[in-house]
Each structure stands twice: as C-alpha cells, then as structure tokens.
Nucleic acid binder design. Structure first.
Length: 420
DNA sequence: TCTGGGGTCCTAGGACCC
DNA sequence: TCTGGGGTCCTAGGACCC
C-alpha cells in the first residue's frame, strides 16, 4: 500500500498558521507578481473563486473586505513544507517528496496494518506540530492513492483519511471519480475522452489497451493499469537531479529598456547558476527567451529565444551572465515592449565530470572558489547578500508583492517586527 | 489597466550511419 | 513496373504534473 499525504489548501493554510484570526475566513494566495490566484481556503472556494483567476476579476470582493489576499511567500511555504515532510517521514522511511505540499509514503513492508488509523495518526501529528491540515489517501498504486486522497478531501471531512484496499472499493472509488480528476489525465485528454463517452475513471478502465495506446501512448496505458491496482509508477526515494533549470519572471510593467531587461536576465542567469551549483551540475547550453504581453491586442506580439552553446560547461554565475547577455543582444529588439523574460540552462552534467577543452584558461577554477564563498555568505546571511554587479543593486523592483506576509520561520528580524 | 513559474516524458519525423 | 534493412541521434511539438 502507498499513501499520498498532502496539505489542504497548503499556501492558504500556511498563512493561517501565523494569523489564527484568519481561520474560517475566505483567503486567497497570489502567484508571483500578484497576478493570478494559486491557492484558496475552503471559504474562498465556496464563494466560487476559481484557481488561476486573475486578481483584478475579484477586486470588488477584495475592496468590500469579503476576501483576504496574500502575495506568495515562498520562503515561508518552503520552510513549512520541509517541517511537514520531516513529520511524514516518521511514519515510513520510504518517502517520495512529490511536490511542495505532498509526499508518497510506501507502506509495502508494513504488512496488514490498520491504515485508517495510521492515516488519522499522521493527520493528528501534523496538525499538532505544524498546524496545517492534511488529507491522507491509501491505495495499492500511486494513482489509486491519489484518488483516495481526493475522496478523503471531498467526502471524509471528519477524518480526512480514505483507504482503497479491495477490488470492491476500487470499483466504487473509480465510479465516483470524474475522468478529469485522474492523475495523468489532463485537460486535453479528458475533453477527448468525454467525447468518447468516458465520464469516470471506471469508464476509462473499460477501454481497450489498443485504443488507449493509439490515442494516449504508453503513458495512458500505465494510468489504466495503475487504476486497476497494478503498480507501474515506481517510487522515487531520492530526488533525481534536474535535466534543465529555468528562472523566468513576468515584469510588473512592459518595458523596451535594454538595461532593465539585461539586469533582469542577469538575475535569472545568476539564479540558474545558484540552482546548478546546489545540485553539483554544470551546463552546456543556455537559452534566453523573452516575449511581449500576449494579452495586449493593441501592439504586435513578439516572442523569441536564443540558445548559446557553452564550450566550457559552467555553473559560474559570472560565466552564465556573460553568455546570457550575448544571447539577449541577439533577440532584443528596441521596438517591442517586453513583459516577460527568462533564462534556461540545459545539457547538464555532473561538475565532477566536467569536460575540459583545448582552450581552457583555468578561469573556471577561480570562479568556483568565488562562487563557493558567495553561496556560503548568502546562505548564512539571508537573501543575496553578495551578488554579481550586473545583477544591479536591488532586486525588489522585479517583483510586485504588495500583500506578502512575514517570513515567520526563516527571518527572525521580520518576526521581531511583527511582535513589536 | 491588470493574466505565474518550473519541471518531465513521449512521439513523430528528419538526418544521418553502415 | 520494380528501388533494402536496420539502426541512432536530435528536435519540435504535444501532453502531463504541481
């Protein structure tokens, strides 16, 4: 048996932990830049607010005080997530951290235990130690655990735990699960399947293998097997190293200033460098992309990208920024106003196996030392104490975050301000 | 006026090899 | 008229996840 444990309305619940007065109130959390809604409390859901709604569509409700709004506070959610995972792992050493708010737990070595009780224990301990409500779903495959979790959240509101452990329960669970709620069936496929008369997860399992393979590839076939209790998607106990890394942002206002975009791109490249170093990788390819505002009907749309081959693979922010600026100069056109830009590094390999070239000038070794010191200082002293000159003096102007809560668990100075 | 960010996997088709 | 067989690698596009 596998369990899927996840935080209910995770970001919204994190905000509530530190402001108990928000309990029972409709609250939403916004994306970076305060653009769209990415998390909602149950009360906000009850008001009919949908995931991904642009904030300006609910301005009226906000002005009337009927709904409370928070900018996203990722340092807080990340730290809360880490603490929550610690608790999860106490219940099974075989854990896969699947996303910021959910994890699979493998109970296959536990024999025939009382899963319902186990789920209730997990929920109680997380509630007590972290203060975030969670739901727990048990099933014989990861896909079934996902379905059980959904049922727990939707129907088992008293316990928050659901167990699917017999063929009879599987059938019942599949019949009450809409096809679009199945893990692995997204918007396109559920639309397609509904046209074919497939409404529930159960209907899907009645389709022939050839039909599924033909229209949905082996991925669809795996989902069918998983729904029938045959495990095809293995646990990943250690997070795989990333094959590509990207940092991108939407700008608060569209701009045609090369200097502004270049500084932003320098920050994105530096961020990619930091992420590369944290997983001990170097990159062979660096892509810079930018685009104008696709919602702007008055001005022509322009989107472009350019990829640089890095002969001497690197994770040095200094190198990456230089390459990024080279790429930017190729695609930047002054006549457009840019709304979004980003940097992606790919062709990653372990830094230990970095390929040397004939023309290696040894600068990489020097950079490595500088980067090590920079990363250490930044880790110890808070956010980006030391950075590269091209990144500019302040990063604050890149992000609109008007309603951000304090970094309660990671920034004691902010917490102190609140207490005063 | 205002619309997020960061990933993965699979397949088909083209280019190339002997 | 008839035009081999068996591969690999790369890329773009489409699907999915949170």
């Amino acid at each position: 048996m596998y369990a899927l444990v996840d935080g209910n309305n995770f970001y919204a619940s994190c905000e509530r932990v530190f402001k108990p007065s928000l309990r029972d109130k409709p609250i939403v959390v916004l994306s970076n830049n305060d653009g769209v809604i990415v998390a909602r409390s149950n009360e906000a859901k009850a008001l009919g607010i949908k995931m991904g709604t642009p904030i300006f569509e609910i301005n009226k409700l906000v002005a009337q005080g009927k709904i409370l709004v928070f900018s996203s506070n990722y340092p807080l959610y990340g730290d809360m997530s880490h603490r929550m995972m610690q608790i999860f792992s106490e219940f099974s050493p075989d854990m896969e951290v699947y996303s910021i708010d959910e994890a699979f737990l493998d109970f296959s070595t536990f024999g025939n235990i009382d899963f319902k009780k186990k789920g209730i224990d997990i929920k109680a301990k997380v509630q007590k130690n972290i203060g975030v409500p969670v739901s727990v779903g048990f099933g014989q495959t990861k896909t079934l655990a996902k379905i059980a979790n959904r049922i727990a959240k939707k129907f088992m509101t008293n316990t928050g735990v659901a167990v699917i452990d017999t063929p009879k329960k599987i059938e019942k669970a599949l019949k009450m699960t809409e096809i679009e709620d199945v893990w692995g069936i997204g918007r396109r496929y559920s639309h397609f399947l509904k046209q074919k008369g497939v409404k529930t997860a159960w209907d899907f399992t009645q389709l022939s293998d050839t039909f599924i393979k033909k229209n949905m590839s082996v991925v669809g076939l795996r989902t069918k097997e998983e729904l029938l209790g045959i495990s095809c998607i293995p646990m990943e106990f250690v997070p795989p190293t990333r094959k590509s890394i990207r940092t991108a942002r939407t700008f608060v206002a569209a701009t045609n200033s090369y200097d502004f975009v270049a500084e932003a791109v320098a920050n994105f490249a530096a961020s990619c460098g930091q992420k590369l170093r944290s997983q001990q990788s170097v990159a062979h390819l660096l892509t810079v992309f930018l685009r104008t505002n696709p919602f702007d009907k008055k001005n022509p749309y322009y989107a472009n990208s350019f990829t640089i081959q890095i002969t001497e693979a690197s994770s040095s922010s200094i190198d990456l920024i230089q390459h990024a600026h080279k790429a930017l100069q190729i695609i930047f056109k002054k006549k457009y106003k840019y709304k979004k830009a980003g940097v992606m590094v790919s062709g990653l390999q372990p830094d230990k196996h970095r390929q040397l070239t004939l023309f290696d000038d040894g600068h990489y070794q020097k950079h490595t030392k500088v980067m090590r010191v920079m990363d250490k200082l930044n880790a110890e002293n808070g956010y980006e104490l030391v950075k590269i000159g091209a990144q500019g003096a302040s990063r604050a102007k890149l992000l609109k975050q008007e309603q951000r809560s304090s970094r309660y668990t990671t920034r004691w100075d902010e917490l102190l301000v609140i207490k005063c």
